[in-house]
């Protein structure tokens, strides 16, 4: 038992260490399962217009003569026009295919690009050039254009200010999701721990180890706190018990019927009816105080126990005397109570 107690003590201290975080894990888990993942993703709000297409391939080789260190050259469409996208020494350039001049992604241009593909049903409110990384635009290359719409999703669209490329969308659902993600990943930046989106830092690993110990000690305690009796009690509650009739006959030959659960001790069944037999030994089968007389019963009930052979003599047994403390009710029966007892 002291073994169990030490586990209880361990479990208690582990709960104190990891309890609040555990609740945060569970709450955020519930949020993740209920939140609308389409609104978090926002993919339906900004969809590339697929009607733009390349009809004629430009002369790649000719352009490359001017950029001998280029590593990648693409022909894409921008607002219905063909444009070259060139990667030179890890820098990306956009060039007009006709004039070969570089295209600057200014506020006007980014508005047009966004309006062409935006399907959120709101009005454009603000256009901001973002130069600093934040929780919302982390992972996007900077500088970045932020376009704020007043739709029901509170959409912020992000575009690379260098190439005009769509970087992603942040909706109010995303912000909620991300907040709970921060709690789930324990990215508590105000404590100087973790970075947003990082789940490999020391704090969460330690917390996970404590949680594992906590779950294991909890499992052990659950196992030890249940006994077989608990399950039998539950089963008994649901399974209808078979009942038998015990007919009580007193000295005046008056009769009274009792319904008794199968297998109940006769003495207990009588006691529940406030019929207390003169037992001194408390049901041990030694004092003989609880003797009753079987008048009518199945053979199975008539068979006497060993202790009854000790306590009652052969004559008494033959007459049908039995000890109520040894008799279990597993058939209908009629019994005579001692003279001093009234049913």
């Amino acid at each position: 038992m002291s073994f169990i107690n030490s586990f209880k003590r361990l479990h208690k201290w582990l709960a104190l260490l990891v309890g609040i975080q555990l609740i945060l894990w569970i709450v955020s888990g519930i949020v993740f399962s209920f939140i609308n993942h389409d609104s978090v993703d926002g993919g339906f709000i900004y969809k590339k217009n697929k009607t733009n297409q390349i009809i004629q391939a430009e002369n790649f080789a000719k352009l490359l003569k001017n950029y001998p260190t280029a590593t990648e050259l693409s022909q894409i469409t921008l607002l219905g026009k063909s444009v070259f996208k060139l990667v030179v020494e890890n820098k990306t350039l956009l060039l007009d295919t006709q004039t070969r001049e570089s295209i600057v992604i200014d506020e006007d241009l980014i508005k047009q690009i966004s309006q062409e593909n935006y399907r959120g049903g709101g009005e454009l409110q603000q256009v901001n050039l973002i130069n600093e990384s934040s929780d919302e635009n982390r992972g996007f290359s900077l500088p970045s254009w932020q376009l704020v719409y007043d739709d029901e999703f509170d959409s912020h669209l992000y575009f690379s200010a260098k190439t005009g490329e769509y970087q992603g969308i942040r909706t109010s659902s995303w912000r909620t999701f991300d907040f709970f993600m921060m709690l789930h990943f324990m990215d508590y930046e105000f404590l100087g721990i973790g970075q947003r989106g990082d789940f490999n830092h020391a704090l969460i690993i330690i917390a996970a180890i404590i949680l594992l110990l906590f779950s294991m000690s909890g499992m052990l305690l659950i196992y030890s706190s249940f006994s077989r009796k608990d399950f039998i009690n539950i089963i008994n509650r649901f399974v209808q018990h078979k009942k038998f009739t015990v007919t009580l006959i007193d000295k005046n030959n008056a009769k009274k019927n009792l319904k008794v659960d199968k297998d109940k001790r006769l003495m207990d069944a009588l006691s529940e009816q406030n019929i207390e037999l003169d037992s001194v030994c408390g049901g041990g089968g030694i004092c003989g105080g609880c003797r009753i007389k079987l008048v009518n019963a199945d053979e199975s009930v008539q068979l006497a126990h060993l202790v009854e052979h000790d306590t009652l003599d052969d004559d008494e047994l033959k007459q049908g005397y039995r000890l109520a403390c040894q008799l279990s009710v597993d058939a209908n029966m009629s019994i005579e109570l001692p003279d001093n007892i009234e049913p």
Binding site: K50, N52, Q53, I54, I55, Q56, A57, N59, F60, A61, L64, E72, L73, S74, Q75, I76, T77
Partner: peptide, 20 residues
Amino acid sequence: ISPISEQIIEQLAPIQSIKL
């Protein structure tokens, strides 16, 4: 580098992007 033939462009239309 040789250019892409018009035949290939026609065959694959509609084309969204070409990357070298």
